[in-house]
Design a protein around this nucleic acid. Structure first.
Length: 562
RNA sequence: UGGGGCGUCGUCUAACGGUAGGACACCUGGUUUUGGUCCAGGCAGUUGGGGUUCGAUUCCCUACGCCCCAGCCA
């Protein structure tokens, strides 16, 4: 029992301290607050999982809230995809779906209160002027000439702003804090800007929109959030978050910052991801090579594996780059237990069993999942002509090569032992067909005399199978840290997608279902491509290959000794 | 060289001031009708220097390194 892993991270620790101090009356209420301006990626998944599980483990709730304060960037399409992704990960916000735009009226009223208290003013400076007067990292800023307008004048101007009397950029509402504050965020930050734009929800009701810092704390406060969790770059904004809530004397959540996720061999920034899409380097936001949630879903990742991954990587404040290995491991670990096995040949080489009757077909028993006795078994067709993997034959085998070679015997999984008696090459010297003999006494894959056969290979009957397209994926970049390189395109992995058109899969797979996970024995985990696959032309994506200890040995032979 | 953060195995991440632990990766062996899984074992870390203490990853000082901030983005 003491082996039970406790859910531990520094945020949980803070929560427990709050429980002791009684700050939030033992309550935990979090929120996931995406801006609907793009697709979610695995880094967002970390945040979603953090917020929802933190609430759940502490008997609390987590809201889904769209932080839609910038109508220029936000679209309904993203709202839909975000909800789909959160649901797919297995979380339920029940009736707690909120939008920042729901609070625009209240935010306006709060702003008026600040104006009345002489803590905010309308500034007529242009963006450039504001920038110039903000000072620098080492120099104090200069006060706006409009800083001392009366509350009456400010109120009037503010309502005129709202009424649409001014063009974009002509006025802002600014908090009156401290132009010489060492934290630049505190140098009279803008609370409202004029944006004559159509909002995805409020349409043309507003032409002034709240800035993040002003809006976010109020959203949290209004929803009774206890722990407002965000990423590290907002640490500098916490004083402002706190300042607004304190001036207003309203319910005050605790903002806590954690380090965002970086993954090796990929990138997480929306800007770069968009470049990949726009540059045609990938087929879209849901390209199976993308680290987006929709991409991972299409690639064949399970939500369970992503949640396990999030648990494994933990949560802390230091910068981190998690190895892609760990993500892949999480998937293998999950699918090994639940994916049914099946045989498929993705690089076919024809085999003729010379001593097997011409027109005979046998149906042999194959176990669906050795890791799950309840998964049962199925029948696979065996016939005189078969396909095996090209890589399972070598004319001149390496020393430890256990597979087929002239005169060598292997086991066909769940089939027979066969021995290679001959091979045929085409005019280019490429092996195109093998002739083998089989041992009828080894049906099912074991021999009565107990002789050892080290190699077991997969195969598919040439007469009974289904043809499919298979897509093999590899990391998108060749660099472990592509984000550090300005010339992204040069570090793209040219082999990140390999399409194999005429693959042969055992006919069992005619019943393959969308969203189901399969293991093609010895090759990896696969699932149907939910966009491009159809009953006439099945398309399988390889989500991840099996671990392959042979690959290393083989490389050793190829490069060094032989 | 203004402010805010962060430095623990290769990579993530733990450790009321009390044996630096786990996972991934890697390496050995064993089992195996998937060169998969599984099992057993191994390698490997507290940024440096001081101080406090019986005892420091933990507290203090200092140095160094890395990240973030000058949007009317979030």
């Amino acid at each position: 029992m003491e082996k039970e892993k406790t859910y531990t991270n520094f945020i949980q620790k803070i929560i427990e301290e709050h429980h002791i101090s009684g700050r939030f009356n033992q309550k935990v209420h979090t929120r996931f607050p995406p801006e609907p301006n793009g697709y979610l990626h695995i880094g967002h998944a970390k945040s979603i999982i953090l917020n929802f599980t933190l609430a759940e483990k502490n008997g609390g709730l987590c809201n889904l809230r769209f932080d839609d304060t910038n109508p220029i960037k936000e679209e309904d399409e993203y709202v839909k995809s975000i909800m789909e992704d959160v649901k797919w990960l297995g979380f339920d916000w029940e009736n707690r779906l909120y939008y920042a735009s729901d609070y625009f009226d209240q935010m306006y009223d709060f702003a008026c209160k600040l104006i009345e208290d002489e803590k905010a003013y309308i500034c007529d400076m242009t963006g450039d002027e504001v920038r110039a007067s903000r000072g620098s990292l080492t120099e104090a800023g200069q006060a706006s000439p409009y800083r001392n307008r009366t509350p009456e004048e400010n109120l009037k101007l503010f309502s005129e702003m709202r009424a649409g009397k001014f063009p974009n950029g002509s006025h802002t509402l600014r908090a009156k804090i401290d132009m010489s504050h060492p934290n630049l965020n505190m140098r009279d930050p803008v609370m409202y800007r004029i944006l004559h734009a159509n909002h995805h929800r409020t349409r043309d009701k507003w032409c002034i929109y709240p800035m993040y810092d002003w809006a976010h704390g109020l959203e949290d406060s209004l929803e009774g959030i206890t722990h407002s969790i965000c990423t590290l770059e907002f640490e500098d904004h916490r004083p402002l978050y706190d300042w607004y809530l304190k001036q207003l004397d309203v319910y005050h959540p605790q903002q806590i910052e954690f380090a965002r996720l970086n993954l090796s061999f990929t990138i997480m920034s929306k800007r770069w991801l968009k470049k990949l899409v726009d540059g045609g380097h990938v087929s879209g936001w849901d390209d199976p090579r993308m680290p987006t949630i929709s991409g991972l879903r299409r690639r064949g990742f399970s939500p369970e594996s992503i949640r396990k991954f999030a648990e494994e990587i933990g949560v802390a404040k230091r910068e981190n780059t998690v190895e892609m290995n760990l993500l892949e491991h999480s998937l293998r670990e999950d699918l090994n237990k639940r994916a049914n096995r099946v045989m498929g040949v993705i690089d076919p080489l024809k085999v003729v069993i010379s001593n097997y009757p011409e027109d005979r077909i046998e149906y042999l028993d194959a176990i669906n999942n050795p890791e799950d006795a309840d998964a049962g078994s199925r029948k696979v067709a065996f016939s005189k002509e078969l396909y095996i993997e090209k890589s399972d034959f070598m004319e001149e085998p390496f020393r430890k090569y256990f597979r087929l070679a002239p005169g060598k015997e292997v086991r066909l999984r769940y089939g027979y032992y066969i021995t290679c008696t001959d091979f045929i090459k085409d005019e280019n010297g490429e092996v195109i067909e093998l002739h083998c003999s089989y041992d009828p006494k080894t049906k099912g894959g074991s021999s009565p005399d107990g002789r050892k056969v080290k190699g077991t290979i997969h195969w598919v009957s040439a007469s009974e199978n289904i043809e499919a397209e298979v897509r093999l994926y590899d990391r998108l970049f060749t660099e472990p840290n592509p984000g550090k390189n300005d010339d992204l395109a040069s570090t793209l992995n040219p082999d990140s997608l390999i399409v194999r058109k005429k693959c042969f899969i055992e006919s069992e797979m005619k019943n393959a279902n969308n969203g189901e996970y399969y293991q093609f024995e010895r090759l990896g985990y696969f699932s149907l491509d939910r966009i491009d696959s159809n009953p006439e032309q099945l398309v399988f994506n390889r989500s991840v290959a099996l671990r392959d200890s042979w690959k290393k040995i083989e490389k050793g032979f190829q490069t060094g000794q032989k």
